[in-house]
Amino acid sequence: MSKPAESAAAPTALVPIPRGPVPHAPESARLREIEIQVDGKAVSVPEGATILDAARKLGIETPTLCFLETLTPVNVCRVCVVELEGARTLVPACSRKVEPGMSVKTDSERVRLSRKLVLEFLASSVDVSTAPAFPEYMERYDAHPERFGKDNATVAQPVKIDNDLYVRDYSKCILCYKCVEACGIDAQNTFAIAVAGRGFTAHIATEFDVPLPDSACVYCGNCIGVCPTGALMFKSEYDMRQAGTWDESRQTRTDTICPYCGVGCDLTIHAQDDKIVRVTSPLDNSVTHGNLCIKGRFGWQFVEVQPAEKK
């Protein structure tokens, strides 16, 4: 190789380096728009979008439980089902991708019946008292779980408190798979938990149901971040709820940056009466996608220790 031309000077720390062009990510292919009909209204969404995306674009509210933007759709709760013209059964809006010419009904009698039954099935077998979405859904679909009686099978079981950070109350678990996805392939890749067993007794478990401290759990809390029912809860919140002091109306939320490494994770600090009570991260944050590690999620307790106690 020939000797480099001498024209360009060697860099020196004293002189700022001139600017280059502003870098860009490679252009991804432009997606074509696909038009479908939802409840008689035409709507266009990009190829690869789902019926749920199309419905949302029209402002049509579709109930979801197992769906979350940051997770691969598992379409198991079936509360988002819609009626697709030409399909034998209803289809899950959260995962069914749009195809040209689709015509979808989101509020037909069949849709309403299935959604009602799904809500009744869940509310009659699971404690949904801390699931924020349920009251509104139940009202909207006129769900009456009590019509299955009092002695019906439920998933009621003792609360699992086996460490100081998490509480797992599987009486509240609707088996939406979100925690498994967040612990596994969609975020944390730790796979401390999986769905075990089969049928009505299928449940979220570590291997042989060993306590969390014996499992692979690294206490990132990302499972709690995605749980839609409060089955998984921070111990701090659980204790306050038990004591009757948890009051979200008195809480502030402030976004800041985690101090524990250079990645720059966005922390949302939930404080009640100027005390930190919980830490989350926004789902739409490009750094975290809602995920944190044990330090970011729980390492705040030192702030709450009074200076005199600080060593």
Partner: peptide, 11 residues
């Protein structure tokens, strides 16, 4: 560990 020593890490 001056900060992290103050939370109850099960790990």
């Amino acid at each position: 560990n001056v900060q992290t020593g103050l939370y109850a890490s099960p790990l």
